[in-house]
Design a protein around this nucleic acid. Structure first.
Lengths: 229, 229
DNA sequence: AAGTGGTCTAGACCACCGC
DNA sequence: CGGTGGTCTAGACCACTTG
């Protein structure tokens, strides 16, 4: 129904089915506009989407060509842990383990600067079994109102989402063996594998929080989808 | 310089800094067009980008409002393993372990149908240490020319990227302990953690290949970035 | 110089949906 | 009914890059 989407879909088909070969110039925008009985800006919009997806390259005075795909981009969504669990129809529970304002370790100071920060450790349960161990530092220079929160009922995760609704984040995903302390919290044997998400969050380029999320490996997975195709 | 990007950046700032509150209607497009001294389609384009990023909701007859962010979307890129390793300045090596046309297990038959498929197992080395164990099924109904490939020199990963350049994929990311056989291949002790990527690939809705990629946990991580902000 | 992309304007038409 | 968004057209101007 929407013209630029139709055009985009058809061009996508021509690329993925090999009608247009990698490295080859595709017809210019005027020709495509005639073919699809529309104006050039409409074709241009469809081509722009293909550029965003990394499928073609457009060059003035030269034309557009199908690109060699060097990397595959995938996207995944991270929900609030409470919603993730209840969406599966399971019961959710939360337990605060520790909350303290103190001098943070070097890797946190590197982001926040050399000042005290709020440390919070908490557990999230699915069907009364530990699902996620949350280990978090909060930058009090950015979120001073956090020092008035006790985090007994509401997890820092959810509280922060309301206090700092929109922020930029970077994640590191990795696997490891649990150490002694983590194993006790997660009710695992020492050395069992965990899936770890490390997240750093900024608001307007200033660091807000650094969190490490540990999940028992057998209970956690991330599912993604290609972007663009 | 580009007007709709400027407008997008400014609107983003107003959302992330809290000038516009969650749930609140933002000025309508005509008002914004006047403010930014442009026409309505230009404003509309900037708003469209905010919708794509999941930051606002637009409703006809009502207006646009800042949305409560329920999930965080992150994107990561997966490069060809050879490029990933050489980009770090390290040496890359490849070794074929097994190649056989045979009747696949149930989870592969569920995707490919009940027919023989090509199984390939191979190792990718970084600085002469195992980095990735590739365990792959190839759908010969989709890629019959794969049966003529011996995969002694070129990995199925790279070969497929040329044979089927553009395809849709889904990934599952998880962690686990290595079993006996995998541990031997990866030169790990049994029970060590591995980071696993499972990828299914389609071309025009038809399954092409199913692959499991195992990485020693201490050598592998995925780094992502937020989309939209 | 000329052909290609990239963007914007001005205006239009329509769909949706609350009143 | 009328106000909001969503899209498209027709035309324009400019930037870039090759010849």
């Amino acid at each position: 129904m929407i013209k630029y989407m139709e055009i985009h879909a058809e061009l996508l088909r021509r690329i993925s089915s090999g009608v247009w070969v990698i490295g080859e110039l595709i017809p210019n925008e005027i020709v495509l506009a005639e073919e699809f009985s529309c104006t050039r800006p409409t074709v241009s919009r469809a081509l722009g989407m293909l550029v965003d997806a990394g499928l073609i390259e457009r060059k003035k005075r030269v034309g557009s060509r199908v690109m060699q795909r060097a990397t595959r981009a995938a996207v995944f969504k991270i929900a609030i842990v409470r919603n993730e669990i209840t969406a599966r129809g399971n019961s959710y529970a939360y337990l605060l383990l520790e909350r303290k304002i103190m001098h943070p370790p070097a890797h946190v100071r590197a982001a926040f600067g050399d000042q005290d920060a709020l440390y919070v450790k908490a557990l999230h349960f699915e069907n009364n079994m530990p699902y996620q161990l949350e280990d978090r530092w909060i930058n009090l220079a950015m979120v001073p109102q956090a020092s008035a929160q006790d985090f007994q009922i509401q997890s820092p995760n959810e509280w922060l989402l309301n206090a700092i609704p929109y922020s930029r984040a970077e994640h590191v995903l990795r696997a490891a063996k649990v150490n002694q302390k983590q194993a006790e919290n997660l009710q695992l044997a020492v050395g069992e594998p965990v899936f770890i998400i490390e997240r750093k969050t900024w608001q307007e380029e200033k660091p807000v929080t650094i969190v490490t999320l540990l999940h028992p490996a057998h209970k956690f997975r991330i599912v993604t989808q290609d972007v663009g195709m």
